[in-house]
């Protein structure tokens, strides 16, 4: 059995186990209402996670994703509030803002050959600062703009019991999976993450791939931003703070290698679900939310330690058979 397959089976068992556990422990967990809310929460996390999965498979890391969400949401909201252009234009503008954010990361990483980690750590500050600048009004105070535009608020709605954002997440996950597994771009993302030299020898343009994955992450952040700000009927500079850790956690739990070259969208989706269920369930148990942090930290460590152990174990086993 391959590592990713084993990983998914373990995750599936874990998801079922924690669901059973929370259902027994709390009467509020396994209700239709909560489950759809849970899916909504998972979707906010998941849409961005699909984008960042590409970055991480290509061997990068995007710590700016949360700030990128805040920035694009601010751009979007302020566009709606202060211009009289057709409302639907906010969509391309928001996506463009996301693409710009990704291009900025890609540019700095490619041009100056700097580690992804430190670049996105710095650009995180830049983006959240920009979001704050947009939020500050003439009087020097931050006052949030509230949106009551029905077209915009439509995004927070539901189709039956299902939130639109969940539908969007499903579509984006399928699209992401397709892009990763069925296109040259996707194949090259793996190649760049696993073996830059070999990728180059096969004629892969590494810089182009790096730009591509960061732009995807930026655009994913901007899509999250649209749905999230629509639900909140506003946007604030703080809205994405800290989500990068949840996103990276979900991706790593889903089996994408922190060192690049391995992983897939299905794993990420499962990781997102698992993480959201754990967070939601702990919340429903009405115990202190501090437990959430401890559990998430512990799960991440368990996930990477398992990967490393399994890799060594299977390598040893393989070489004994030969």
């Amino acid at each position: 059995m391959t590592q990713s397959m084993l990983r998914k089976i373990i995750l599936l068992v874990l998801i079922l186990a924690v669901m059973t556990f929370f259902t027994i422990m709390s009467p509020y967990f396994f209700t239709a209402n909560n489950l759809f809310t849970l899916l909504q929460e998972a979707s906010f996390l998941g849409i961005a996670a699909v984008g960042v999965t590409f970055v991480m498979i290509a061997g990068g890391l995007d710590l700016s994703i949360g700030s990128a969400t805040a920035l694009t949401a601010m751009v979007c909201i302020n566009f709606l509030e202060y211009t009289n252009l057709p409302v639907l234009l906010f969509l391309p503008i928001s996506l463009l803002a996301g693409a710009f954010v990704g291009t900025f990361n890609g540019f700095v990483i490619n041009r100056f050959k700097l580690p992804d980690f430190i670049v996105t750590l710095s650009s995180k500050g830049v983006f959240s600062g920009l979001a704050l600048v947009i939020a500050v009004k003439e009087n020097g105070f931050v006052s949030n703009v509230f949106i009551d535009n029905p077209t915009y608020l439509w995004f927070a709605g539901k189709l039956g019991p299902l939130y639109y954002v969940t539908i969007a997440f499903v579509i984006i996950a399928i699209g992401g999976h397709f892009l990763l597994k069925w296109t040259k771009f996707g194949t090259y993302v793996y190649a760049v993450g696993a073996n830059k030299n070999a990728a180059m020898l096969s004629g892969v343009d590494i810089k182009q791939i790096k730009y591509g994955v960061y732009i995807l992450a930026g655009v994913a952040a901007s899509i999250t931003a649209i749905f999230q700000s629509s639900r909140m009927m506003t946007a604030m500079p703080e809205m994405g703070i800290g989500t990068e850790l949840d996103i990276i956690a979900a991706i790593v739990i889903g089996g994408t290698a922190f060192r690049g070259g391995r992983g897939d969208i299905i794993g990420t989706v499962m990781g997102v679900l698992f993480l959201t269920i754990v967070k939601n369930g702990i919340f429903k148990l009405q115990i202190t939310p501090a437990i959430q942090q401890i559990v998430i930290g512990g799960i991440i460590i368990a996930a990477v330690v398992f990967d490393e152990w399994y890799r060594n174990y299977s390598a040893r086993k393989r070489n004994m058979v030969v």
Binding site: I57, T187, A191, G193, A194, N197, A198, A257, G261, R262
Partner: peptide
């Protein structure tokens, strides 16, 4: 020296 991509 191997030039393969392990994840593919």
């Amino acid at each position: 020296e191997l030039s393969l991509i392990p994840g593919l």
